[in-house]
Design a protein around this nucleic acid. Structure first.
Lengths: 357, 357
DNA sequence: TTGAAAGCGCTAACAA
DNA sequence: TTGTTAGCGCTTTCAA
């Protein structure tokens, strides 16, 4: 029952686009059939006799017809649009996960017949943007990417029965008594990533591996931290005095690493973000230490920064292309069967090894 | 004549959102007026008597009404959507101009009552994405960002009389006999940026300043290069042997700078991109030279990479927020008066000075 | 397998 | 100042 886009024939000389695009009626007249038959040719081609179908398709090709979106949307009560909120660009950090994800989402959505509608967050109330789009039925569903902030969006959207898929597990929105969330979600196993990073450093012979992460109230931060402790403890190594929890800024990473180098004297750092890892690189630069050769550093996110900074920053890479694929397929399931909420999807990151380790 | 979004009252207890959102008719019934009066209350509030308006607004607030987008779009033949093609994320480079621009565009569009619809480029024909959206009247206009590649999009869109504004001057699409383009455009003066960068280095006492730019067939590259030569020649300094034209990759920048350091022995580099500048930083790292202290480096784009790499990469910054503002206002002008094409807008970049110079 | 009728929710034009 | 009528272009009945 796929909603086929009209096939644009190559053999037919296409008429120049008139001021107002052709409608179903124009195609019907040219093909000598009724409007419904043209509609069927597009949406249910199996219903037509082959010769009728061919005649209609020729008319479609010649006229360059494509169904008017607004009319179709009005009639079918869909928009083929996925809404995603995008915050202001984060300058002065290495954070670009969302940008990379947007690219993947756009590509994946296209294959599913959807476009991505971007909207800005209102400075004050984070929910107004969602509300406006929802009330006006401007989008079919949302992709929510900032569940981790403890934002009320997920709960708010659930209450409205608004279709959405979260990129980020529902840290505290599980159904009572189950491990099932009320909404579909896709996430990347951060702890597995940092465990991978730590194991990599252990293999390289490091045994004093420090952690620089986010403040304790960050669920993601604590999750990523747990991968480091798990790997260390698994080797019987202590972590006392080797951890630091700070803001996600270059300056904080710089300070934390300077402090740790003076106290616990680690030979390697695992960081909760590339931003923090870049802070470590600053400290090494200040002290004339060489990343990789003197002190190993691993970041998280595999940002452009990690890829291009000399001598290359080893970093945990989230499979954002796969995330997008799972998000879109969850979205399709959600729109097809609104009542059914499938299980969450947890993906495993990889490690991009570069000069810094 | 502004198309006001309905005011959401705080004083009125909002009814829970029903399964199907309220329509104009629901509001009309509740307010005891006709549907047209409700429509006027939203689109032409001045036409209503204050007490009627208040009654309607109360009903709107209580019901949480917002006009159905599809119906409005169908009737007004607009979509309040701006289409923008987004390519795949460029990994392994420092190029993120488009991402930063998208953020700015989304924010600016919102103020003008538009949303941004992102679509992916078909690998083969770059025009199919535009074509599909145009034929189905899914967007009101496009923002085209890759005119510089010599892509046929601008000409193609012009031929279709599709409304669009280009980010990037029309390098070879000027009207015959004039310096006017056939379409509105906004661009940043690259030559002014590199001239600024070169002048900055000259002030710092450098006189052997090298250029690493793109291949000669890149109009943007040659434009940026001209700012460097202008500044050098303006001080009576020769540029012979100080320039290199390569691919826009880290490796190319690395090789070119290594070669130049061995031949012309420059004390500073001006680069056509942050990617190339990062290549220079790689070479300096290889040779134990300190950016800023031993050799100065300036990039172009003020990417995240420039901002966070130690000791900070001085870089030419494009005023993308302003670009977005001018693009959106050109778009509004275009949609209001399709026949009139205003003059292009050229903006001046600034220099973000950091440790590398 | 094809066609006729109805209506999605809104706004423009006109009438009262 | 408010209400009535018509119709944007499409798809979903239902009838032929």
């Amino acid at each position: 029952m796929s909603r086929n886009e009209p096939v644009v024939g190559r053999a037919y000389p296409r008429l120049p686009m008139p001021v107002t695009p052709p409608t179903l009626a124009d195609v019907a007249e040219r093909a000598g059939v009724s409007r419904q038959t043209v509609s069927n040719a597009i949406n249910n081609p199996d219903l037509l006799r082959p010769d009728t179908l061919a005649r209609v398709q020729e008319a479609i090709a010649v006229l360059g017809y494509s169904p008017n979106r607004a009319a179709r949307n009005l009639r079918t009560r869909t928009s083929q649009l996925i809404g995603m909120r995008i915050g202001p660009a984060q300058e002065g950090t290495a954070n670009a996960t969302m940008d990379r994800f947007v690219h993947s989402l756009v590509e994946t959505s296209r294959e599913a017949g959807y476009h991505v509608l971007l909207f800005a967050g209102d400075g004050g109330d984070p929910v107004v943007g969602y509300d406006a789009l929802l009330r006006s039925t401007a989008v079919d569903a949302f992709v929510v990417t900032d569940t981790y902030l403890g934002n009320p969006q997920a709960a708010w959207l659930e209450e409205r029965r608004a279709p959405f898929v979260a990129f980020g597990r529902p840290w505290d929105a599980l159904r009572p008594g189950t491990d099932q969330a009320r909404h579909p979600w896709v996430d990347v196993d951060g702890a597995a990533g940092t465990e991978l990073a730590t194991a990599h450093l252990l293999e390289k012979g490091h045994d004093r591996i420090a952690w620089i992460g986010w403040r304790k109230d960050s669920r993601i931060g604590e999750d990523r931290r747990s991968g480091w402790t798990r790997a260390m403890h698994g080797r019987g190594l202590a972590t006392t005095g080797l951890a630091s929890r700070v803001e996600d800024t270059i300056a904080s990473g710089r300070e934390a690493s300077a402090h740790l180098l003076g106290s616990a004297r680690p030979s390697a750092f695992v960081c909760a973000s590339d931003t923090l890892a870049m802070g470590v690189l600053h400290t090494l630069g200040d002290r004339g230490l060489r990343p990789g050769a003197d002190v190993a550093v691993v970041g998280f996110d595999d940002s452009q920064v990690a890829q291009v900074v000399p001598p290359g920053l080893t970093s945990v890479r989230q499979p954002l292309e796969d995330v997008a694929v799972h998000v879109v397929s969850a979205l399709e399931g959600l729109l097809a069967h609104p009542a059914v909420v499938g299980p969450g999807v947890m993906l495993t990151p990889t490690l991009a090894v570069r000069g810094s380790s």
